[in-house]
Structures are given as structure tokens and as C-alpha cells.
Design a protein around this nucleic acid. Structure first.
Lengths: 232, 232
DNA sequence: CGGCGCCTTTACGCCACCTTTACGGCCCCT
DNA sequence: AGGGGCCGTAAAGGTGGCGTAAAGGCGCCG
């Protein structure tokens, strides 16, 4: 999840169905979205494809060693990873933490503690990505706190979706947000395929932003969009 | 500790002398500097005065509740705090983590695990202060995080495949990537034989990179390609 | 009950990108 | 000298993505 919008998506990688049956309701009750992977390969694939905000990783997987999965995730992503494991050997913990895990929780664990550790891990990410809540670029000013956008002094009329989209882009200036990221954040996971929404709404935003619109919101073909600040 | 400079200083806040006698040598052997506080007030004072890189905080202190100490530290500092406690009640852990603790370790603990968790906490700080993931070579700058490539200041227009190819080469500077590696990573395993794709796209990249292009991306005949950084 | 805005969906033209084919040069080996 | 890989360049065709317009449905408010 990028700062400022919606809640987080958590990927659970575990081969035991009862863990999924147990964790999914708990996580969803806490307001998180949940993705499921039943083995290491699936976990790796979803880590890349869905870009979850946090990964809960079991060490004892049938196909790939959990340690290997962690290494490979770290090869391309800094997503927080909390290792769940029944193994309580010190060496195991130390190896996992040094391989890039952000925390290590022994099974059996209490849900409350796990949720607290998830909050802690997500807090770290937000501290790292912390964005100012007001952002100006020439004539344009996006005030996340006041939920207001002004262009050359006067307020812009934006529909809820238009604002959500612009706010998300503004919280990640200069960074590309993928179609999937934008769609899940603004329209929800159910519409993560509806790229046409983005075309329509980006078009509307560009139009409302006036002459500078097309240059402010840039298209990364096949990937997503980014908002840039023209150096004025 | 500031990024890239020396080693870290750790403040140990605990009222039991044997904990200090036990931890100080272990921490110093691991290369850390150690500050000692025997109660909550002293811990707060030293947190402010010495600006340690990490705090190990016992919850059971004689004068101030550890929870209070944590809150007050968080009022002025984001220093990582690892709570040590003999109390293993869930509510205690959750309260400490939500109050801003970065980790919670139950006594008795293993030194190895504690050191690993210290490394993890320090890694988080460094990640927060780290420079964006980018790679510069003379006029060329490849920014993996922003997904942007600039040449002498201005952004290059790259198609998705062009960018994927260049990014892969850039994250393996000076190393040869085989035809097969490049093809499977960019085009997928189904096209691992289509070496001609590489010829076409490497050609396009060299052209877009301008005069330095041909020297930047080197051909290893019969093997693959590598990206080199000219020493400027 | 009527109007209005917002969301969603469909349609369509355009352009860029991908893929493929063709050709010429270079090097090495015979 | 000749030939065969391998490499690089150019160009063409198809296609899929992108942007734009517009219409229908729905809810909200007057």
C-alpha cells in the first residue's frame, strides 16, 4: 500500500490449509486484504505479481525451502517479511533475520501479537515512504490533508475517484504506479483488471489540469502512470 | 549512527546489574558501543543526551514504567527500541509494539537471536536513510526505483522491453548475462531461443544511449551481453 | 418526480511497440 | 580463398494498448 490511501494487502505463504483458514478471517477482520499461496513458487510469483504490502512466510514449505523463498523475494523487493515457523532453533531464527526477514514469530503464536507485529512492520514502511501531505508544482497544489486541489489559485472540482487517483499519484511523485496498484487502491481488488477505468479517469484528470495536464501525468506504456513535477 | 560511518552505539536500560554484566561484553564483542542506564529516568536522559543508535529497554524498571519510558522516548526520537521483558503476557507485548517499540524479546533470550534482531532493527534505519536505488555512469543514470533512465539530465523514452533489458543489465554491472538469462527474464521462457530479439533491442538501446552506447553495452560473442561503466 | 453528476461500459481511430524477415559485414575455421 | 556462424542494422506488417468520445444506468438531491 502506498501512503495515504486504503488498507494493506498481506500475502500468506503456507502449505497448511488450517493456517489459511485461521489467518484469513483474522487478517480480514483487522481490515487487511489477504492473498494466499500454498507453496514457495506460488509465493514468489504472487510477491512479484501482486506487490503485497507484507508477506507472512512459513519456513517449512513442501517445494522450496522458506529460506530460499526469502532470498529470492529480497532479490527484487523490499516488502516486509514476517517469518512464521514451528522451528525454534536459534540458528534458524538468526539465519532468517539476517537473510532479510523483518521479524520471526514462533508457532503457535497469539493472533494479537502477530497483528501487533504486522502493525509494527507496516509502520516501518510508512516511516520510510512518508510523504508530505501538501505538494505544489507550479500552478498546481494538491493538499492531501484538506482533500483539496487548486490550479492557479482556484479549487478544482474533482469526483471522488478522480481525487483518489490524483492523490495516490501525488503521494508517489516521480514513481511509476502500476495499473494494478492504482486499480486495487482506487477501485478495489475486484477491478484490478479494468485498465480502461484508468484510461478514462487519467484522461479526465489531464483535461481538468489544463494545458499542463498531459505533461504532468505521464504514461508508462504497458506499465502504469506517474506524476511528475515540472521544474519551474 | 549515520549511514556509512563506523559502528553503532546501543543504550541498555535495565535495573538488574547482571543483565549489564551479561550484555555489555556480548554487545562489545559484536562491535557495538554500549551505554548503560540503571533506571527509567537515566534511560530517558541518555536517550536524549547520547543519541544512541538503538535502545534495549527493560519493561520492569523501579522508578518509571517501561511503557512510559517508551512513550517519552517516542515523543522526541525515532531511535529503534527493542523491549526486553520477562513478562510474556500478550497484552504487554501488544501495548509495547503499538507504543512504538520495534521488537519485543522475552527473557530469557539467546544472545544470538538478540544480536540478529538488533541487526534487523539497525538495517531498517539504514534502509530509511538510504539513497534511492540508482546507478550512475557519466551521463547515464538508471533509477530502478523510479523506473526512469536519464541521459545527460533528460529522461529517455524507453519501451517496456527496452527498459526491462537495460534494467537487468544495469543491476548486473560488469557481469555477463547470457542470451538465455536475458531472454527468459524479459520475454519469458517461451522465447529463450529468440536471440534475434536481443540483437534488435540491444541495437535500439545503443542507439538511444547515443555516442557512448556501443561502448556501454558490450557484446560477448556467442555468450551474451554486459553493461560496463566507463571510468570517468 | 425531474434533473444532475458520477460511474461504468462500449466503440473507434491512432500510434507505438513487437515481431519477423532480409541483408551485409566480420571473424574464425577449414 | 571460401564458407558458415554470429552479429548488427534496417524496414515492414500486424496488433495490441492508449486516448477520446459518448451513451446508459444509478443514486442523490432538490
Amino acid at each position: 500500500m502506498k501512503p495515504g490511501v486504503g488498507s494493506a494487502v498481506i500475502l500468506v505463504v503456507d502449505d497448511e490449509p488450517q493456517i489459511h483458514r485461521f489467518l484469513r478471517p483474522a487478517l480480514e477482520a483487522a481490515g487487511y486484504g489477504v492473498e494466499r499461496a500454498d507453496n514457495g513458487r506460488e509465493g514468489l510469483r504472487l510477491s512479484a505479481a501482486r506487490a503485497p504490502d507484507l508477506v507472512l512466510l512459513d519456513l517449512g514449505l513442501p517445494d522450496l525451502d522458506g529460506q530460499k523463498v526469502l532470498q529470492q523475494i529480497r532479490a527484487f523487493s523490499k516488502v516486509p517479511v514476517i517469518v512464521l515457523s514451528a522451528r525454534d532453533r536459534d540458528a534458524e531464527k538468526i539465519a532468517a533475520l539476517d537473510a532479510g526477514a523483518d521479524d520471526y514469530v514462533e508457532k503457535p503464536f497469539s493472533v494479537g501479537e502477530l497483528l501487533a507485529r504486522i502493525r509494527t512492520a507496516l509502520r516501518h514502511v510508512r516511516a520510510r515512504d512518508a510523504a508530505p501531505e501538501r505538494l505544489e508544482a507550479g500552478e498546481l497544489c494538491v493538499d492531501l490533508a484538506a482533500r483539496r486541489v487548486t490550479l492557479s489559485g482556484q479549487a478544482l472540482q474533482l469526483s471522488p475517484r478522480e481525487y483518489a487517483l490524483l492523490a495516490l499519484l501525488a503521494s508517489n511523485v516521480d514513481r511509476v504506479l502500476t495499473h494494478r496498484q492504482l486499480l486495487t487502491a482506487v477501485w478495489g481488488p475486484a477491478h484490478e483488471e479494468d485498465v480502461q477505468y484508468l484510461r478514462v479517469y487519467v484522461g479526465q484528470l489531464r483535461q481538468k489540469l489544463g494545458a499542463i495536464g498531459p505533461s504532468l501525468i505521464q504514461t508508462e506504456p504497458g506499465v502504469g502512470y506517474r506524476l511528475v513535477l515540472p521544474e519551474t
